[in-house]
Design a protein around this nucleic acid. Structure first.
Lengths: 331, 331
DNA sequence: CGGCCGTTTGAGCCACATCAACCGGGGTGG
DNA sequence: CCACCCCGGTTGATGTGGCTCAAACGGCCG
């Protein structure tokens, strides 16, 4: 906790040193305290990595490339990344910003430079409270989160699930106060960009304004698909569609991943997402399982028959990862 | 039809003259042909009005004012407007652009100057086809429209209802092709801004980029509310909520209006919006009527007990007409 | 070991869908 | 001018997908 106050003056070297100290200290402790120290170390290392990406482009990175995809995949494996095997590093996020949000190196760097220190939020804790004032844009770097609305009668509706790379509140920023509360589904690392800085960026860099617009539009497209499910699809199709969507989004961010992935949702959560009762979710899940389409156990989803699942979901992934026409690909 | 080819070179005077000619011609005809000529006249007059608003600000209009609302109401009654009593004129749209989208006079003028000639679309006809390429931003100047998605089994889901002042596809522009088809619920006048021009505007005028973002976010907020209804609200509450929303949106655009307004939706439409069957919509409608909350006949909705309706809908209008923090109201 | 959380299973019920018919008005064509 | 028809609204009967309530189960953590 203490170091959070001073951390933003440090260079990436110093940060890595601090992380190293934490790890050393952890060695002599054990139990909860050890875990805490290790977590701090991880966060510090993450921050160090971010620091490197914030510095002005040094030309050694193949930043300005027309075929975004390829550049992204290459970058991902070069230079800074992969300090934490198994956990995608910051490079993944950086390339994501470029391909999905179509930011140039300079724009991306400007965006990251405006960010405050990354924050870790533990599983189950709140990133944004319903009704709180919007004071910064929040980008999810790692982990998953959900946006929830609670009704008077105690009913809950999950209105969005966020994966790494998503902006949690690009749309909410149009309002003074947040309309949903957003909590972490896993332990999460987030980056926040204070509103004044963001406003400046939007004024000076059209690409960033476009990125925010685009992100809001993407979110709206997903919401629309959910609406259609809630309104007109049967419980089976609805659930299947949702699972397809999550699978695709996961793969969009990290193309490495196979057909199985982390889906840290309880059946309760699924019910609140799909407008179903927990009990019914259970039964539908079982029927999908029985048909050999999926396997779903303690937060890990395995898609056994992708084609089959897509079929009963009538899933068409066009609406994700929009190939867009906001850009200057014309004339 | 013929004049559409030449119309964009004409001054507002000439346009008014043309409209006058049409009316004169109409006098000697009758039946369908007369109606057609009168419609053309109306459109030409509308265009003339738009022309006036496109010209560089002449200083005589109280354009830069902090208290947006009041400026808007005043403007509405001065100068150009009110050529068509009963039908709100173009001034209403212009002021709407300023208050809701927070555009300065210069920005608004730039936006309007980029627009093509306004187009009239008849009731029931299509403004945007599902799957068509997005080639321009479309603003609804007058009338109402709905966005619809059709599923494989023939089921329909209405995913948005647009009222005057809304941008029909601010969000869709993030994708190459439109995901919904949008058709006119009433006879409609629309303004479209070609994508190349729009891209230029976004690059040069941050306020316009912000406006598009804001509009997309507003739309998303409405969608979210629908989602909650579809997922967790009872049929009564869902319908009531929808009616409240439409009432508020109507009043936001035209504060004159009372508690009754045009709602050109069939019960079929309501069903497709709310995820209910036509039959059930009918019954719920009757129960609301029986409770003295509303009156709804041939496309005209009268809210008899606003408080009561709001109550059973758990309606909170915050999410409309967002008071926003994207702006420079801070330091 | 005991409590807790998430899952599973069963029984009964209700909100809403579906099917089918009838009604009433306004536009169309003869 | 009337006969007709089509569309939207209304009504009733019947079916069902998904909800609710209740209880048991299994793994995990203290």
């Amino acid at each position: 906790m203490l170091q959070r106050l001073t951390v933003h003056n440090r260079s990436s070297q110093e940060l890595r040193q601090l992380a190293h100290d934490r790890r050393a200290a952890a060695a002599s402790k054990d139990g909860r305290f050890k875990a805490l120290l290790l977590q701090e170390a991880k966060l510090l290392e993450y921050y160090a990595e971010l620091r490197d990406w914030m510095e002005p482009a040094d030309g050694s990175r193949p930043d300005r490339r027309s075929a975004g995809d390829q550049a992204a995949t290459e970058q991902m494996h070069s230079g800074h990344a992969d300090r934490h095997p198994g956990l995608p590093g910051f490079g993944l996020l950086a390339s994501w910003l470029m391909t999905r949000l179509v930011l140039s190196a300079a724009d991306r760097q400007a965006l990251l430079a405006a960010a405050a220190a990354p924050r870790q939020v533990l599983k189950g804790e709140c990133l944004i409270e319903e009704g709180s004032e919007n004071s910064s844009l929040i980008i999810l770097c790692r982990g998953m989160a959900r946006a929830i609305r609670t009704l008077a009668d105690g009913g809950q509706q999950i209105v969005a699930i966020f994966v790494a790379g998503d902006m949690l509140n690009a749309g909410e920023l149009a309002f003074r106060r947040s309309r949903t509360s957003i909590s972490a589904l896993t332990s999460v690392i987030s980056l926040s960009i204070p509103l004044p800085a963001l406003n400046r960026l939007v004024d000076e860099r059209p690409a960033i304004a476009r990125a925010l617009w685009r992100e809001t539009a993407n979110h709206a497209a997903i919401q629309q698909e959910w609406m259609i499910g809630l309104g007109r699809r049967t419980a089976q199709a609805r659930l299947a569609h949702f699972l397809c969507e999550m699978s695709c989004r996961q793969q969009l961010f990290n193309p490495e991943a196979g057909d199985g992935f982390d889906l840290p949702l309880t059946q309760q959560d699924l019910g609140d997402t799909l407008g179903l009762s927990t009990v019914h979710v259970n039964r539908v899940l079982q029927s999908l399982r029985a048909d050999g389409l999926i396997e779903f156990n303690r937060g890990w989803l395995d898609i056994r028959d992708k084609a089959g699942l897509f079929a009963i979901a009538e899933f068409d992934q066009q609406y994700l990862g929009g190939l867009m026409c906001l850009e200057e690909e014309d004339d």
